[in-house]
Design a protein around this nucleic acid. Sequence first.
DNA 1: ACAACTAAATGAACGGCGTTCACGATAATT
DNA 2: AATTATCGTGAACGCCGTTCATTTAGTTGT
Lengths: 235, 235
Amino acid sequence: MGSTERRARERAEMRERILDAARNLFASEGYEAVTLRKVADCIEYCPATIYKYFEDKDAMVRALVEDDIAMVMATIQPSMAEQTPLECLRSFGCAYIEMGLERPNHYRLMFMTPLLPVDDPLFRKKRADPQTDSYGLFLSVVQECVDAGLFRADITDACLVAQTIWAGLHGVISLHIACGGNDTYDWRPVRDRAIFMHDLLINGMLRVPAIVLPTCPSTRPAMPVAASLPESVTP
Amino acid sequence: MGSTERRARERAEMRERILDAARNLFASEGYEAVTLRKVADCIEYCPATIYKYFEDKDAMVRALVEDDIAMVMATIQPSMAEQTPLECLRSFGCAYIEMGLERPNHYRLMFMTPLLPVDDPLFRKKRADPQTDSYGLFLSVVQECVDAGLFRADITDACLVAQTIWAGLHGVISLHIACGGNDTYDWRPVRDRAIFMHDLLINGMLRVPAIVLPTCPSTRPAMPVAASLPESVTP
DNA sequence: ACAACTAAATGAACGGCGTTCACGATAATT
DNA sequence: AATTATCGTGAACGCCGTTCATTTAGTTGT
């Protein structure tokens, strides 16, 4: 008796040790740098052992990334209650920008890498990622703005609005991650571009374009996340 | 005599045969599916031979992708002369959207994949890609719009404008490539979103928001490109 | 025409990767 | 104490990109 609980706990702890070892490699050096042999070395087990805890390498890394991102996005939820819908909209965007810029390797795996070939039979199965929750929350914020009559008369599709704001911020972030090191483009500061994009999109859709609120300070405190460290991006 | 020219020609032909074999694999199945052994099989040479023509796999695939994209972007250049700056701006965006949607694997490698870790010593060396030319052309079009006084008084930085329009379109395209298969998001049609984004950004910056011009038809003829075929995206 | 030289192409190997599986070791249950 | 389930392992498999000494083919010089 009781021992089955202990077993389960030990199993969960082992799982976490694997994830922590993988996280250190992934966060600082990216997906390719995460090697089952390296992770195994790190926790002093043999590579095959990892397969007792994860289906394969991809499942392991994705578990890690989804955990981390869900944790980051969860930190902004509390402030939602005490803000107007429009403030929520802006806060959400700013949080998303910082998340992408601070954790480029996480961002890359989640939003810049197709999970599977579109025709793959496993395709349906793997589509239950928790990131959906964040999107759902964002969508509901947009819907509130629509319901409050904040947008132009011809803009009633909250889904289209949400997807467009998402795409705009994603464009700035992902282009920065992929091409930000190419100095032939003479990039403007990435946070300036992100804010410019954000305001352009929101003001372009508002019925009464608002004065830009003092959100999104360029120097914003880093958001807490497990084992948060500076990341560099790898090819 | 003359034989050195023939040698050079034969060398170039061999190079093209390698690129063509690689292109077929890459366009339909993505980067990971391009294997030096498969390419070598395809052209009936041994894998090591490829190294006489390309530094490594990455150089081979990038050569192929850059060729193809440069060819696509070159097709829009002729129409530039007979259009107003604003029309050029829109045409450019539309061409870019179609290029990304029709050749997702090309797009992914060029704009969604960091070339090298940012600190890498080889970093500087590899930064002479021809895509820069397209960006330069686009930038000059934006500059024309600025000079013509089309934009708001506070929008004078052509570079910021170009990078923002690019990022907006890139956001729609890349999010479609990476997450377009995830139907939990209830995506609106990708071309609708791209046009919505395009108009929102341009109109948001114009001094006098324009009526939307009849560009960007949803059913646009495919642009010609070497060995153009439908692509699927792989993880 | 033959030898000397140069460039092209190769087979075999290296080290690394994700993954599998039959087999011991260990702990829990009966 | 015997049985059963779980955990962990070593060794292998088949792939990958890449290297290199060696062989082959073709050009050049005499």
